[in-house]
Design a protein around this nucleic acid. Structure first.
Length: 153
DNA sequence: GCCAACGTTGGC
DNA sequence: GCCAACGTTGGC
């Protein structure tokens, strides 16, 4: 099983929005970056656990845990001319973009801020610090353990 | 609101 | 295939 970090802008979609979904499940659509897409398409597997990160807020921080419940399938928002995520180059018979479904698991007892991560030497190699713009990132099992421990009351 | 870092586009 | 121009992300 693998661990991941998914970024979201809570003003658009937050961990609370996920928790409040009727079945606590959402489509993680709108990914329009090839590196992120490749992770989604090739490596994100059912049962994997995901840290949810809130970006573009103060402070930017990890806020909760979700679980992958459906592996990659075509992101239909790319076909919708009315969608913010419309991409005319993505064809239905050969979709460029994919999405997965994730289910809410829990909030962290205490959020772990970007600042805390940056100040934790054992987390210095996190992709979040190396390539802060990547919206789907792998997390090592060691990093996962450290972060979930930091998040405890 | 600024701007650094990064990704994409398109002319050559 | 290179790289300048442009657009986006996201921390500050």
């Amino acid at each position: 099983m693998n661990y991941w970090l998914f970024k979201t802008e809570p003003n658009t979609y937050s961990i609370d929005d996920l928790k409040n979904e009727p079945n606590k499940i959402t489509h993680w659509d709108g990914i329009r970056n090839y590196a992120a897409r490749n992770f989604l398409r090739d490596e994100v597997k059912k049962g994997d656990l995901v840290l949810i990160y809130h970006s573009v807020v103060k402070p930017p921080q990890l806020v909760g845990v979700a679980k992958v419940v459906k592996e990659a399938y075509p992101d239909h928002t790319a076909f919708d001319a009315n969608s913010h995520y419309f991409d005319p180059k993505s064809k239905k018979d050969n979709p460029t973009w994919v999405m997965v479904d994730i289910e809410y698991v829990r909030h962290l007892d205490n959020p772990v801020t970007l600042d805390q991560i940056r100040n934790t030497p054992t987390l210095e190699n996190m992709v979040l610090l190396k390539n802060s713009r990547l919206s789907i990132q792998p997390v090592t099992s060691t990093e996962w353990s450290i972060i979930t421990e930091m998040a405890k009351d």
